[in-house]
Amino acid sequence: MKPWRDPGLWLSLLVTAAIGLWPAVAANKPYAREMMFTVLMSVGLASSLNIMQGYTGYVNFGHIIFFGLGGYVGFYLLSVYHAPLYVAALAGALTAALVAFLLGKAILRLRGAYFALATIGINEAARSFVKNFDPFGGPTGMTLKFHVYQAYGGANQALWITYIALVVLTLLIILVSYLVKTSKFGLGLMAIRENEDAAEVMGIVAPDAKTWAYVLSAVFPGIIGVLFFFKNGNIEPGDAFRLQQSIEVIVMVMLGGQGLVFGPLVGAAVYQRLRGYLLVSPLFKNIQLAVAGLLLLIIILFVPAGLIGWLRGRFPRLRRWLV
């Protein structure tokens, strides 16, 4: 089927666009923008992680290092060389891609739980390294000088520009996720997920396919990191390499349904809205982490296919829409 005739792709793009346009119609626009920035960022992170976790079947606890490294390199260019945002974003993407390529060549030889363990180690190693790396400000990180925003017509304008860039990027990620899933490359990845040995016997060059999947899934967090920390105005190791955040992204993918295009999108949006609600509710504010944990446990034990996966199983007619 041609991509533009697939209702499933349109639904995913429309939902993303609706999230992106929300601040334009909301009463309190800057507030809605901040809220939707977080949601879109999560959608982008979850959808890109899904290329590894959902399509290829490799659980990566270090997805956030690409966000952190890309963010750091971009931020460095922004603050030290006053590079334009698009140059910084490009640099973030390239850094993430390069690191993923080299890392992938090494650790993708590990299978299953061993790969997952290695990514935990890499996440911690990257954070400890940046903490000690003086050009990046060591443990205190870096802060953007206010005049950097002047080039974008002031801080307010800069925030909107960043937001629009994120909306476009997220739409692109959804499109790429769809194109990968429906391509020959994607078929190879899913064969690897199901049975890597059998896939190799069928002629799938698993080491290469996995490496490219890893690179592709790393590029987007690299760019998102640049946008996020540009918007934030400062960057520090604790924010850039939180193992916790890597795991939250895994939870989002699971919540929506891994291996689907629409799943991580819905999972990320639901998770962030739920989290937002728990944070403002006085009853749940103190135990939001525990509630999120309980939610995760319930999904794993009883709805392992995720929300969208469950819907697809329960109502086969919806499958055309929920790809």
Partner: peptide
Amino acid sequence: HRVIDAPYLSTLLATFAVNMIVIGIGTA
């Protein structure tokens, strides 16, 4: 117990969920 034979991701995340619950209540 329920996911002991499921793919390894399930037990990984199930134990992580326990971690979140304990830490969440502990922090509170």
